[in-house]
Design a protein around this nucleic acid. Structure first.
Length: 428
RNA sequence: GUGAGUGUAGCUCAGCUGGUAGAGCGCUGGAUUGUGGCUCCAGUGGCCGAGGGUUCAAAUCCCUCCACUCACCCCA
């Protein structure tokens, strides 16, 4: 097929059975979120470019070079969302959600877009599952969110992850820290790698998570944000840690953990997983006490904490530890033998579906052999053959594909037959 | 944006220092007139990523481009 259109670079088709893994992950997430009182929010995939520039940060890579932006016909600059926290914060402010009683708990599931060079675990369209807990600055919120995340990963029976925890401090701390870091970096930077020398000027915090072993010794001499927490932030962080300990959530203190988005303050965290290659961040998040306020929420009402989980990465890590089992799209395979059987056969299938039984049919022109072969390879549990004999006797030929046992079942007894068999299988 | 690796059948790949294309899987049919996943047999299937160059001769050597992958960067 010459010149046939192909998928856009960095984007991919998710086919069965992979779509099934995604659906399972999403169902588990919804289930766990509900246990903590979270409800779903759906915001548009398109936002004003300005929203991301103001919240994510003008200087970040995401805003600087990774956004899919275009000018609409009315000259408005619009952008395909690179992340959803900004959108949720925007909606929180726009609909004055702080006026509702209690903290606001929202979760979302959906595609995000960043124009990066694709590689393992990194796509230009990728799905994130995230949640935001808004309306307060209590350390209890931070702990609740991390506990919920640990529960979600447990619910998915995912193992092999590590929680990294840090505190970046509040705005004042950050200012003092940035100054001190710049100071400390001046004599050391010339001895570091080219990337670090560049980062020392553009984004000093980033120097901290340089992976070059040669630079580690120098980086170890640099101050970390933890050294500059004021009493309030230190107390906040200590409480979060105490609550995690009490809940039995293991974590690693990672003073050099840095978050990429500008709006983060205080608690920052990341769950990494060993089976993900270079892009090992399974989910990341943190507190953003000023985000919503900057978008117009009254002072104090906009504080919150949130996370985003890379659904594609989660599915990939999840699948890495499981054997693929053949699951039928429908348990019953209907084999109409010949065009003349088609009418009654389809009516029968429809009757079964009315009882909640899944039925998939094969082409009436196929041979019985081809039907059985197809049924078996589609992992169906039963094949129901309807031909002239069956129509004359009003008895369907039902074959259990696992055992090969075949029996004649009256048309009216079919639904009952399958229901009974299903219970038998489930109880055995 | 930078670097490296790889492009041969629908898929996974073989094809040595140039002589004009192969396997396994898949798919179709048969062994089995209405009975399966196994087995056996047969068949189907490729402008060897694209363009140019060297040569009597290029999948193979050289150049350019394109695509994919991984890594850097950055992040979920």
């Amino acid at each position: 097929m010459p010149n046939a259109p192909t998928v856009v670079k960095g984007m991919r088709d998710l086919l069965p059975p992979e779509t099934r893994w995604f659906a399972e992950v999403e169902a588990a997430a919804r289930e766990v979120f509900a246990l903590y009182g979270y409800e779903e929010i759906r915001t548009p995939m398109l936002e004003r470019t300005e929203l991301f520039a103001r919240t994510v940060g003008e200087e970040t890579d995401i805003v600087g070079k990774e956004m899919y932006s275009f000018t609409d016909r009315d000259q408005a600059s619009l952008t395909l969302r690179p992340e959803a926290t900004a959108s949720v914060a925007r909606a929180y402010v726009e609909h004055r959600l702080w006026e509702k009683p209690g903290w606001t708990r929202l979760y979302y599931i959906g595609p995000m877009f960043r124009r990066e060079r694709p590689q393992q675990g990194r796509y230009r369209q990728f799905s994130q599952i995230g949640a935001e807990l808004l309306g307060g600055d209590a350390p209890q919120m931070d702990a609740e969110m991390l506990i919920m995340l640990a529960r979600l990963l447990d619910r998915l029976q995912l193992t092999g992850w590590t929680l990294y925890l840090n505190s970046l401090g509040c705005a004042d701390d950050r200012r003092r820290y940035d100054a001190a870091l710049g100071e400390a970096l001046r004599p050391l930077a010339p001895r570091m790698c080219a990337d670090c020398r560049r980062r020392a000027l553009t984004h000093p915090l980033r120097v901290l998570d340089c992976k070059r072993p040669e630079d580690q010794e120098l980086i170890a001499q640099l101050p970390t944000p933890l050294d500059f927490l004021d009493d309030g932030c230190r107390g906040h962080f200590e409480t979060v840690r105490r609550l995690l300990d009490a809940a039995g959530i293991a974590y690693q203190l990672q003073p050099r953990l840095v978050r990429g988005l500008d709006y983060y303050t205080r608690t920052a965290f990341e769950f990494v997983h060993g089976a993900l290659g270079a892009q090992n961040a399974l989910l990341g998040g943190g507190r953003y006490d000023l985000l919503a306020e900057r978008l117009g929420a009254p002072k104090g009402a906009g504080a919150g904490i949130g996370f985003a989980l890379g659904e594609d990465r989660l599915v990939s890590a999840w699948q890495a530890g499981r054997a693929a089992e053949a699951v039928p799209a429908a348990a019953i395979y209907l084999a109409p033998l010949g065009e003349s059987a088609l009418g009654p056969a389809l009516a029968l299938a429809e009757n079964l579906r009315r009882q909640g039984l899944g039925v998939m049919a094969g082409d009436a022109r196929w041979s019985a052999k081809k039907h059985l072969s197809t049924a078996a390879r589609q992992a169906a549990r039963w094949a129901v053959l309807i031909g002239e004999n069956e129509i004359n006797s009003r008895q369907a030929a039902v074959k259990a594909l696992a055992t090969g046992e075949q029996s004649a079942v009256g048309w009216d007894q079919l639904a009952e037959f399958f229901s009974a068999s299903r219970e038998q299988i489930l109880s055995s």
